[in-house]
Simulated assay, not measured.
Amino acid sequence: MASFSQFGNDLYTGKRSFDFVGKKRIWFTVAIIAIVVAIGGTFLRGGFVLGIEFTGGSEFTVSNPAEVDQSLAQDAVAEVVPDAATRVSVVNGGDSIRVQTDLVSTEESQEIRDALGEAYDVPLEDVTYSFIGATWGSDITRSALTALGVFLLFAAAIMALYFRTWKMSAAAIIALLHDLIITAGVYGIVGFEVTPAAVIGFLTILGYSLYDTVVVFDKIRENTAEGTSRTFGESVNLAVNQTLVRSINTSIVALLPVASILFIGAVLLGAGTLRDIALALFIGIFVGTYSTIFIAAPLYAWMRQGETIVRKEDKKKSAPRTTAGAVR
């Protein structure tokens, strides 16, 4: 059995290759199905579970509770505000109970503090209270969407200038939107809470996904330069194979520490911020690697195959061959 390094060398030289471009319809179909499931699943589940930072509301934290039974908090809040929507979670490795509700009045907040202190057998000073207004929450949402839009426009413009073709830029942005929709869909379907930390994770994976795509596209530009005997599709496919091992290695190296942070943050420390950021990064890096290999490059090849100059060049290069010259 050939070693992994020999396998990578065979992919780079073209001695061995996977037909990513030739099977693009399969990858596109898988991507479309995944997007439909992500959007449809989120819609059927009732939308995203937005954190209090986006919706506004009241938050109570019970430190050092005698027990961590979440139903006690729900019952305590229901005694004061029967119709309040309550979310209870255990944080800080079980050392605290976090209770989030709709925005309540000052009098109601004091009554809820008293009820929580009694329910968990802690002094009143161990039950803290804070609130976030709906206006501030809407400002955060607007700022996050604005940051996303500005990033996408800026990245698209820079890539179009760098590669001197808008089609590479469009393919990269479409693959990036695929990553965002799938990652957000996982949050929506599973019911993970979307917090500012999760949004930071979303924005971070945009940079990672684009970086991986740009590396592949740079190799595509090199392979499709004049003087090669390969067709355009073959050159694109070779570029993906040449960078395949690098993409896999980079993703594994990136996923390992993120997985460690996710485990430590969620399981050992109970740190919500670490968990939210690491979870978004973990999903996004995995999906981003897939989209770079199976979506971005094949999509770019498909966008260029209808151009007159590409068709003429491919016909000229294919004419002397006894076969269609498809990659193995």
Rank of each mutant, 00 (worst) to 15 (best):
G93I: 02
G270L: 03
I97V: 14
E125V: 05
T228C: 06
V245N: 01
S5W: 15
E79V: 10
Y208V: 02
E313L: 12
L268R: 11
D212F: 06
T195I: 01
T61R: 15
T204L: 13
F20M: 03
V150A: 11
K219G: 08
V91A: 11
F54I: 00
T273H: 08
L180D: 04
T106D: 13
S3E: 00
T323E: 11
I293F: 10
T228S: 15
A115H: 05
F18M: 11
A301H: 04
L210K: 02
F4C: 00
A326R: 15
T55A: 13
S5Y: 07
I283T: 03
A184C: 12
M303L: 13
V199E: 02
A31H: 08
L176V: 04
E193M: 03
T204R: 06
S17G: 15
F18C: 09
W27V: 09
D95P: 13
I261H: 10
R25P: 13
G8N: 04
F217C: 04
S209D: 05
S169H: 00
E108V: 11
I189W: 02
E111P: 08
K167I: 01
E53Q: 15
S89L: 07
R246Q: 09
V37T: 02
T55I: 11
E313N: 14
G46C: 05
T165Y: 03
G137I: 00
P196A: 00
T128E: 08
G325E: 05
D69H: 09
D10I: 00
I52S: 08
R98G: 12
I295W: 02
G188S: 06
V199K: 08
L148Y: 13
L203R: 09
Y12C: 13
T195W: 01
G51R: 03
F20W: 08
E67N: 15
A184S: 12
A119S: 11
G40E: 02
I32F: 14
A66F: 11
A197L: 03
D69S: 14
G149P: 14
S130N: 14
S58G: 07
S291C: 07
A175I: 01
I293A: 03
V240C: 03
L299G: 08
A156Q: 09
A296F: 10
L161C: 11
E313Y: 03
V190W: 05
K23P: 11
S318G: 12
P320G: 04
V186C: 12
V81A: 10
V245T: 12
L11Q: 02
G47R: 01
P320C: 03
F54C: 00
G22I: 00
L244W: 07
R113S: 14
S143Y: 12
D75W: 05
G188R: 06
G56D: 01
G185I: 00
G133E: 06
G46F: 06
Y129R: 04
V190R: 06
R328A: 10
A31Q: 01
S89E: 13
K15V: 09
F4E: 01
